[in-house]
């Protein structure tokens, strides 16, 4: 090992403070949203099921946006790459809607 360290001249750059701060801010936002989810889970009564579900889904999508955009760096990639990842997600949304609808129909028949 000592041999390779002698022959390799690695130029270590100093930490990018602004970038690191931004990453910790993203983590803080994710934690705050998770805490908000818990608050909603215990304060909004179960009678308002639809409202609860929609709040949870919205918060989940916001969290997913931060993870994919900032942590996975997709926001800063080329537009073609962003769209080729996001457009196929349409199939998932379509499949989800179709199958939930189907499930409710099964429930009605039973």
């Amino acid at each position: 090992m000592a041999h390779t360290e002698e022959t390799l001249h690695i130029n270590v750059l100093p930490p990018d403070r602004a970038k690191i701060k931004k990453l910790w801010m993203t983590a803080l936002i994710l934690l705050v949203i998770t805490i908000l989810e818990f608050i909603v889970a215990f304060t909004v009564p179960h009678e308002y099921k639809d409202l609860r579900v929609w709040i949870f889904i919205t918060m989940t999508i916001v969290k997913a946006g931060y993870i994919v955009g900032e942590f996975m760096h997709l926001r800063y990639e080329v537009k073609v790459l962003i769209w080729s990842i996001l457009i196929p997600m349409i199939f998932i949304v379509w499949m989800l809607v179709a199958f939930i609808y189907e499930g409710m129909a099964i429930s009605a028949v039973r």
């Binding site: 998932i92 499949m95 989800l96 199958f99 939930i100 189907e102 499930g103 409710m104 099964i106 429930s107 039973r110």
Partner: peptide, 15 residues
């Protein structure tokens, strides 16, 4: 997604 959607289907089919 396939797993979670199937879960959604079965759950919404239950009372």
């Amino acid at each position: 997604s396939a797993l979670l959607i199937t879960y959604g289907l079965v759950r919404s089919a239950h009372p």
